[in-house]
Design a protein around this nucleic acid. Structure first.
Length: 212
DNA sequence: ATCCCGAGGG
DNA sequence: CCCTCTGGAT
């Protein structure tokens, strides 16, 4: 296919820049991905992976996590920040999944966002990466920043940005759009000093600081 | 709008 | 020092 629109061309180029784009959060099952995604709030995925590499050797299932004393889990995830809230939410998720969903992570948006500490962003990560379900597009701090810079979205609220992206891309690309914009935001279109000179889509970017 | 919270980079 | 990192609840 030869996309002739701005959004399509950007996706096509990013697709070549980042082959096999998928979440950088290391996980072995849907529940591990849920835990990793909760831990990833305001924290680098690299640090999350360091913490979970150790954590998941001791606990892997909702049953395991539901019985961890809060103080113990707080200590294990301390370096990811927001550790009290995250520990409470992770244990709360584990117990809710045990009691309400027979120990299986639910594969529905409404049920996922009913879990403590799980919003639309986290739910979209789990739905798309663990279950292959594209109900929406992941809008995190990277997607927020990059889509605005590229002119793919003009809003400030995550929900509206998600709607704008969903309107621009076919559903089959939703998962890829999220992961590609995250990867590009982390590697090139950084918050502090964007690397416009080495950006593969700078020629399509209204915000690019062109100097070459 | 504010709070939760640590770690790394510039 | 200040800013940022795959947010969510109040």
């Amino acid at each position: 296919m030869r996309p002739d629109d701005q959004a399509g061309m950007i996706l096509g180029i990013l697709r070549e820049s980042y082959p096999n784009a998928q979440t950088a959060l290391v996980h072995g099952n849907p529940f591990e991905l849920l835990v990793s995604t909760i831990l990833s709030a305001q924290c680098t995925d690299q640090r999350v992976n360091v913490v979970t590499q150790e954590l998941f050797t001791r606990y892997r299932t909702p049953e395991d996590f539901a019985h961890i004393p809060r103080r113990v889990l707080e200590r294990e995830i301390h370096s990811t920040g927001f550790f009290r809230m995250k520990a409470g939410n992770i244990i709360g998720c584990a117990r809710a999944i045990l009691e309400r969903y027979k120990g299986e992570v639910p594969a529905k948006m409404a049920e996922l966002v009913s879990l403590p500490g799980v919003g639309r962003k986290t739910a979209n990560v789990v739905l798309s990466e663990a279950f292959g379900i594209s109900e929406g597009i992941v809008v995190d701090t990277h997607v927020h920043r990059v889509s605005k810079r590229l002119g793919l979205a003009g809003s400030d609220s995550p929900v509206r940005i998600e709607e704008e992206l969903m309107d621009r891309y076919p559903r089959r690309d939703w998962r890829e759009v999220g992961t590609l914009l995250i990867l590009h935001g982390r590697a090139v279109c950084r918050a502090r000093s964007p690397q416009c000179a080495s950006c593969s889509v700078s020629h399509l970017c209204p915000s690019a600081e062109l100097y070459l």
